[in-house]
């Protein structure tokens, strides 16, 4: 079985796992992002290298907030790439905050048969899909004993194992023996929020600034933050189509919010369709570009210098990708 993480993206995804990193994934209507979210999730849990999987526990715990997509989708796609959501949820490696079925009474779980297995998994349901309730649910999750919210700086020993490709920062401990260190007390979870921009679109009372400050607070409590957003042109380029003054608050807020996120992210993964039409064997284009968060490490400390040199090695890049029926993803450069 091929590696779950596409080779061209591995170095970038590994870099996204550095502490205090914010990663932004944008997608458009024809190129949804679940496959990439799952690969980021996989890398967080098991590391980028497709090494011995039984030496799990190399990565971080994940708080996974899904606002627009059902757990059954994640479970179905995850299963095909080696993420067993059922056991990950039971082991508390993933804490799932279900923003989609929040309002539905859980008695519904007994009624259906097909997804019964995913229903009985421990998930957190916010009372409703408002910023306040999501905030409460996340605070609640982060307070739970299995995930420590200690503010001590994260010991970085466990992290290094996920970056053995890097010569400068090579792991002192091989992944297999790193496991005792992995679940250190001070470890903070990584938070992945799918569809955070829906909060902004569906609640005009929430301003982009409010949402950004929520995310900034969240960022201090977690190891890293990964966000997926929509970057469809009607949501961003309102000024070019309808002229200034004709945009609705929804469009204006979305553009401001997304731009802000891109500035505070280390890497931005953009998914979009082919510019030249559509093709049977190409699902879309993925572009990985540097976000605005590169100045953060300048002159901070000696520890970060490998990070910096490493980051400078990575250039922005653009590839084509194809999502295949068995959830495998082929990523290749143009002309390959």
């Amino acid at each position: 079985m091929p590696s779950s993480i596409p080779v061209p993206l591995a170095a970038y995804i590994a870099d996204c796992l550095a502490p205090d990193t914010q990663t932004l994934v944008t997608s458009v209507l024809t190129t949804p992002s679940p496959w990439l979210s799952l690969r980021l999730l996989y890398a967080t849990l098991y590391g980028v290298d497709d090494g011995p999987r039984h030496a799990q526990q190399t990565g971080h715990e994940v708080v996974f907030v899904s606002l627009l997509r059902p757990l059954s989708l994640w479970a179905e796609m995850g299963k095909k790439m080696g993420l067993d959501f059922a056991s990950l949820l039971r082991n508390r490696r993933i804490t799932y905050v279900d923003g989609l079925t929040g309002g539905i009474p859980s008695t519904a779980a007994t009624a259906s048969t097909i997804e019964a297995d995913t229903r009985q998994l421990p998930t957190t349901r916010p009372r409703s899909i408002t910023l306040k309730d999501i905030k409460d649910a996340l605070d609640d999750v982060l307070r739970r004993p299995s995930i420590s919210t200690s503010t001590r700086p994260t010991p970085s020993g466990h992290l290094s194992s996920s970056r053995s490709a890097d010569g400068v920062f090579s792991p002192r401990i091989p992944p297999a023996t790193a496991s005792p260190f992995a679940r250190s007390v001070g470890e903070k979870p990584l938070i992945l929020i799918d569809g955070i921009d829906f909060l902004l679109a569906s609640q005009p009372s929430v301003s982009p600034v409010e949402l950004q400050s929520f995310l900034a607070t969240l960022r201090t409590k977690c190891h890293g933050l990964m966000l997926t957003c929509q970057a469809d042109s009607p949501l961003l380029h309102w000024s070019s189509t309808s002229g200034p003054g004709h945009e609705t608050p929804l469009e204006r807020n979305h553009a401001h919010f997304l731009t802000g996120l891109a500035h505070s992210a280390r890497w931005v993964f953009q998914l979009r369709g082919l510019d030249t039409g559509s093709a049977k064997d190409v699902s879309g284009v993925i572009r990985v570009s540097r976000g605005g968060d590169r100045g953060m490490y300048d002159g901070v400390g000696v520890d970060d210098s490998p990070d910096r040199s490493r980051e400078q090695d990575l250039a922005d890049g653009e590839w084509l990708y194809q999502l295949q029926g068995d959830s495998a993803v082929r990523v290749w450069a143009r002309g390959e």
Binding site: P70, L100, T101, G102, G103, I104, A108, I114, E115, F198
Partner: peptide
């Protein structure tokens, strides 16, 4: 979103 939730709850 509510319709989507229902679809997710009764897939």
């Amino acid at each position: 979103h509510g319709i989507r939730s229902l679809l997710a709850a009764y897939p």
